[in-house]
Design a protein around this nucleic acid. Structure first.
Lengths: 154, 154
DNA sequence: GTGCAACCTCCAGTTAAGTCGAGGTCAACA
DNA sequence: TGTTGACCTCGACTTAACTGGAGGTTGCAC
């Protein structure tokens, strides 16, 4: 527990962030974080990397891809003071995305809630499994190569 | 637009659900949906599969994995009338999961909102990137092999 | 000055969720 | 009877996000 210096080794960052060193190198490769090197070519991170990592992990947890996160972080001028407009742009685009996701989650939860209450006992008939309202503005699935065109259902 | 029979071919299901036939076979392989076969060995789906697929896609969209969805669907007695207790159990476990996710999303959004307002112009100092509150009950990342132990940050 | 853990690079492997293509079958119409 | 389109299986490939190992270097404590 010595006072942390400002130049953390990859091991220290891994320990303090809970993120494996392999993942840290991977993030660096992908441009999500950066490091300088010591005389002997070892990575040295500024302390701020921990906050950046926390941000990355939070965004990731809510379903944003590393690419989206990376893009977002890169709309901010890379080394120096982003303008308020930069921030506003980033925030706005994410807010829409987040709103959409929150909405979808709440609708799913709502369906579950009402289903429990409604006394229906089968997936076959329950409206839980029968959307009714518009859905699927985004395609799911891992390979986000081409957006799939969602047809109407039932 | 002939009146839909109750035994849909894979092509019909694909068209009506907007889900590629390749994915349908994949879901079947994973046990998320089932089919019977025609005399000539072609898949035949009951109409109800469309609702089931809508449910799957919705759940997937909000970030649940096919495995989680499959598990959930399998807590319901497979072919006949699940009891109210079955439903309650499934619903409850999902609700917690959904609540957690909604919460995380809202916190992230809140941080973005307040950040815009606070006038801070750098990720380095903004509390947006500095969680402060407890987070990461679930690990992110694709390989969910071993849950990662999240250390404290900064 | 030696030993060993922590670091380095490079590359191959893994998982989830599919996609794609080859090679073959079936059904229905002309 | 022929051919065309929808279907079948099987296996290889893709993308994102990592993990793991081999083989070599650094840093620092004794």
């Amino acid at each position: 527990m010595s006072a942390l210096p400002d130049h953390l080794s990859i091991g220290e960052v891994a320990t303090r962030s809970g993120i494996p060193h392999t993942a840290l190198r991977f993030y660096e490769e992908r441009g999500l974080i950066t490091s300088t090197r010591s005389a002997g070519n070892q990575r040295r991170y500024p302390r701020a990397v921990l906050r950046r990592l926390a941000f990355i992990r939070t965004a990731q947890r809510v379903g944003l891809s590393l690419e989206e996160i990376s893009d977002a972080l890169h709309t901010l001028p890379d080394q120096r003071t982003p303008t308020k407009a930069d921030w506003a742009k980033l925030s706005k685009s994410w807010q829409e995305e987040l709103d959409t996701r929150i909405d979808a989650l709440q609708r799913l939860r709502q369906r579950l809630t009402s289903c429990i209450g409604c006394g229906c006992l089968s997936l076959r008939t329950c409206h839980l499994s029968n959307p009714g309202d518009a859905m699927e503005p985004l395609g799911p699935g891992a390979p986000r190569l081409k957006p799939r065109s969602e047809g109407g259902i039932d």
